[in-house]
Design a protein around this nucleic acid. Structure first.
Lengths: 334, 334
DNA sequence: CTGAAAGCGCTAACAA
DNA sequence: TTGTTAGCGCTTTCAG
């Protein structure tokens, strides 16, 4: 056990194999210009000494680390968890590691995480922005490609991968209107977050384009949590008598659905923005607009790769398509 | 825009501030032995040049990187997602970053990821082991603390943070027996994974200690996916007529629950191992043994910290407590 | 095909 | 209080 007090470094390998450091390095990097016999010998010594290259030293020399930074709102959130997984598998294909961080919607934390990752010299940064003013990022990220995910960051010129929240929500609303609904309630997060604002816009637009009046009391754009969404639902059902509800976020659906079940009012039509586990096990199944985190993550990595290839091309916006999964709740008539 | 072609390094700062590199370094590291005026001047220059320290160069010098490696089965899985979040927030308190990786139960991938992280000289590694033989890890991880999470790794002597799967499953089974059930079915993953084997053991033990015979046809320890668990459920209901089911994994519950709902046989009692979203929105709510990923992650980081402090203490096993959440499905009588 | 030597950006002995 | 001088482990000109 007290054998290897010291770490084996490349010099040890070279010495032990009777070659120069340069040659050992060549073998390590699979440089073809090494005699087959030499290579074999060096490889053998590496094995015997159980040599492990130091990734840090390598990247220091290269100036860039083979790591992707990924900053989301919360890794625990199912949507972001899937996003992380998707990014990880894409990164993996490129032999890169993934460094993660959760902002928890705290701008200070966001900045801290981003700075930490830039200091690590990550080769690229994927960011779900939280704060409103991102001019600071625009200044410090000059040499590291940044791809914004899910929503734009005011003050930051960078690539963006997003969903067309407005169009998607409008489509969901139209779907309900087409079932014959007129009194449609909206449950969503505060419109201070741009995606929430876009969704609310989409709802408004769809209602307006079908000549339906907007009943203020049916619009609850103040539900950041499942609990508040559940409360809003109870309130809506007892007061406004909507025949359908549009839940504009998964977090909201997680409150709206249990509330409707508890009230035994699953006859009220429902379309949710964002899929969730068990959405098809309920009775009726919950119709949702799927927001495929997988697709978003893949698109973000694709965009990052494109940026690596063309560092000076103008910022680009990628729209990831969404699609509706009809499971019953959204197809109920008034 | 074409201003800062080159990265600003500490030497630039030193030069610009008219001090030596060492002094600039001192300021960066908050060394008290710097004249207040000098410090102020250096700090100002850093700000003006928007200097960013190179974390890589720092860690190269230190020999250790302030990063924790975390290798789980799949980041997308809700349980592991929560685990990642929990680890991240603990790491954050210690100013460390988290590097993640998913094995997808592939031993080769596991080894690759682990080697990658060790090469990065992570200061500690948290691993949910997948392969059976981990002697390779025992050899190469000599200088990096490893904490195994969720299950032991044969051939690897290391700290372990786990749940007492056997006792927890036995408790769940006993709970069903106490409701008066005799014909209890078991749906779980293959017992090749040690946790699955432990759970099956727990089921057996509880049944035996209550003098109940084990009906082989009611034991389905061959369900690695929700789909297979759903199929097993359909089969069990039509053939064996169990009055209760023990679902030994979240993945299984995600198949068992929808199947029971589809068959309109929610009268069959059910206890699941592992909580999941919507478990309380269903009718009846699903009684589960909660496997708190949060607690597991926190315990793992605590263990790692202890290991940092005492590198030579013998390997330790931490058992994270579980608790039952009674929601109705498990309290139904035959 | 192989080797000697110069750093990547930073920290830490050792002086001054 | 500050500066000089070596390296951390590796890659990479530039010669042999």
């Amino acid at each position: 056990m007290a054998t290897d007090a010291k770490t084996v470094i490349l010099r040890d390998v070279a010495q032990s194999a009777g070659v120069s450091l340069r040659t050992a390095s060549r073998v390590l990097n699979q440089d073809p210009n090494v005699a087959e016999e030499t290579r074999r010998r060096v490889l053998l010594v590496m094995e015997q000494l159980s040599y492990t290259p130091d990734a840090m030293a390598r990247s220091l020399r290269a100036g860039k680390d083979a790591t992707i930074g990924l900053v989301v709102e919360s890794v625990a959130d199912p949507f972001f968890a899937e996003l992380v997984a998707s990014v990880e598998s894409a990164a993996d294909r490129d032999d890169r590691s993934v460094l993660i961080g959760s902002t928890h919607q705290d701008p200070d934390r966001e900045r801290l995480l981003v700075e930490q990752m830039l200091q690590r010299r990550v080769s690229g940064l994927l960011l779900v922005p939280t704060s409103n003013d991102h001019t600071w990022l625009d200044r410090i990220a000059s040499s590291t490609p940044v791809v914004l995910v899910d929503r734009p960051a005011p003050g930051m010129r960078a690539d963006l991968v997003r969903v067309d929240d407005k169009a998607a929500t409008a489509a969901a609303t139209t779907h309900l209107i087409e079932q014959g609904h007129r009194k449609i309630a909206y449950v969503g997060d505060f419109p201070t977050v741009s995606t929430s604002a876009d969704r609310l816009d989409g709802f408004h637009a769809a209602m307006a384009s079908h000549g339906l009046e907007l009943v203020d009391s049916l619009v609850r754009a103040n539900c950041p949590t499942p609990e508040s969404a559940a409360a809003a639902t109870r309130d809506l059902v007892s007061t406004g008598e909507p025949t359908a509800i549009l839940s504009a976020a998964t977090r909201c659906s997680l409150g709206v659905v249990p509330a409707l079940h508890a009230l035994r009012r699953t006859d009220i039509a429902l379309v949710g923005f964002g899929d969730f586990a068990m959405a098809d096990a309920l009775e009726p199944g919950v119709t949702v607009i799927d927001h495929s985190a997988q697709a978003v993550g893949a698109a973000a990595m694709t965009r990052l790769a494109a940026r690596f290839a063309q560092p000076d091309s103008p910022p680009d916006v990628t729209y990831v398509p969404v699609h509706m999964i009809e499971r019953g709740s959204g197809e109920q008539r008034p």
